[in-house]
Design a protein around this nucleic acid. Sequence first.
DNA 1: ATTCTCACA
DNA 2: TGTGAGTA
Length: 150
Amino acid sequence: MKPIDKKEPIFTIGIVAQRLGISEHTIRMYEREGLIIPFKKESGHRLFSEYDMERIECIKKTIAEKKISIAGIRRLLALIPCWEIKKCPIEIRKECPAYIDFDRPCWLHKANLKGDCATNECRECDVYNSIKSCDELKELLKKFLVSAQV
DNA sequence: ATTCTCACA
DNA sequence: TGTGAGTA
């Protein structure tokens, strides 16, 4: 009986840093730059799930292999079509900062969003989690390269 | 013992 | 990105 729910935030930043070979400082930076959304206890202490670690590892590898910056990753994440995933009505999306901003993903606009986008926990949202497998980040990278050449 | 935030000879 | 300070 292994109660290992990959979604459960149970790992401390120290554990994650050690197992992924990344400094705690860098992990916090990923958060500051909007790449990840760690679970936070009342105390302010971060906790990470198995999926969180996979995401962080994916980001780390992509930055290293593709030689793009943290801001670059953020722009990739900003390409996630949240309006499609959330079936956002056209009247709403026209006014939505997440639909307009090409630099930052929707969860960094949480304070200015409407409907359930404003109340949902972005950490649990399908938009944020559409990058669970690293392949999907690569797909975004392809789209990014295409749109960047135009 | 660990993590947090903030700052930077 | 690293490292130290001062906490909780």
